[in-house]
Nucleic acid binder design. Structure first.
Lengths: 222, 222
DNA sequence: GCCCCTGATATGTGATCACATATCTTGTTC
DNA sequence: GAACAAGATATGTGATCACATATCAGGGGC
């Protein structure tokens, strides 16, 4: 049996990219927070080079914004941008669910039930980090089943940009599930998968995205 | 009156990125062609630094593939990848058309008619470059009307990856329009816009993407 | 004549340096 | 005491260098 840990094989800038990306997704940076290459390099213990490449990639993915010519900040989500993101997500993700419903197998469904239980446990007892990770794990497991690398890439990019929004949403996940009665919406989704009703599954996911966003936008002023 | 040309203000790596991106979209690189940073830097007359950043961005956008740890090539489109791209494009782009139909104005329609005439002229008399540019101009004009930056970004990324496919398709554009009788499909689209029939416009665009792809895939063996 | 080994070349990556300029600090003047 | 200007600092960008290693060529052994 091999007891060696898998050696860290990626290039440094790839690791820095993953590190920053995860930090952004988990909301470890405040939206609008100014980042500088040299500061991040110091914190990560590297030179500026890998950080430069990672940052530029995140800028091209719109997770970081170039302000002037010499100032970069974590992307801010205006109400307008959130509405746009949600509009696009409610087009694409339900369609991915529809595709997944056409290819899903019994073992996939069992796997989804496990992930959903983890998610519900995280929402009940976990911190925001747990909730976000469990939520991502569940939905990306669904999207993986759709077996479309392109779709997965697109959705991944949209979720990266949704980071701060999801962060806020799941910070009060129990409250909004309670108010909307959507606590068991993923169970409904799984049930639709089991019945083989792809259209229903699509509608459920669309409703989930839309209703959550409406609730969030209505409570934005608070 | 200011007679000065607008000074080239962007950073060098941004310009290199645009240069390479355009070259890929226009098919100036062969799919699978090996590219090296140093060679491109020499050709472009810069050091390796700007090229590095541009290349890494194109890799993250899947226009360039990292083969081993030390070899990069222009992305190749397998039949499988094309099918996936088309599947995703037939989901997203008709939806963008649907959104555009709900916001389009008479002046937009006039503009589209101009662009469509240019496209048809390019297909009749232009070279592949002209056809590709005119086609892109027409459809992106439609997508701009949808007024969704996110959607535009997603579609842009899909078109970048479709580069070699579109290149082949438009190389025989007149032939496939003749065989399929789709020469006036954009006129139909504009007509649907004029009637305010968003659903029809969506169906037309969906059919356009699907039928073109089927024709192309059927002729792939030749 | 074919295969494998070894040295040479090529290549991506990371670090450091140089530079222009945006941003902040501080001191001076009214 | 406040406003503005000049110097200092910080920062992104581009070039160059160093290095590990992948890739290739040529020669030697069987």
């Amino acid at each position: 049996m091999n007891v060696l840990r898998k050696v860290e094989n990626q290039t440094l800038h790839a690791r820095v990219y993953q590190e920053l990306r995860n930090a952004i997704i988990r909301g470890h940076f405040a939206p609008g927070e100014v980042v500088t290459i040299r500061r991040l390099a110091t914190e990560l213990g590297t030179s500026v080079m890998p950080v430069r490449e990672a940052i530029h990639r995140l800028i091209s993915e719109r997770a970081i914004e170039m302000q002037g010519s010499r100032s970069m900040r974590i992307a801010m989500l205006t109400r307008e941008k959130i509405e746009d993101l949600i509009r696009v997500r409610s087009i694409i993700e339900p369609e991915a669910v529809y595709l997944a419903a056409g290819r899903i197998g019994e073992d996939d469904i069992l796997e989804l039930e496990v992930l959903n239980r983890k998610l519900m446990r995280a929402i009940k007892h976990g911190d925001v980090d747990d909730k976000l990770l469990a939520n991502r794990a569940f939905h990306f497991a669904v999207y993986e089943i759709a077996a479309s690398p392109m779709l997965l890439q697109v959705i991944d990019s949209l979720w990266l940009q949704s980071g701060p929004y999801l962060q806020s949403l799941f910070a009060s996940a129990d409250r909004f599930h309670e108010e909307l009665g959507t606590e068991f919406i993923n169970d409904e989704l799984i049930e639709a998968f089991r019945k083989g009703d792809a259209g229903l599954a699509r509608r459920i996911r669309e409703k989930d995205i839309r209703v959550s966003a409406e609730w969030y936008l209505n409570h934005l002023d608070e």
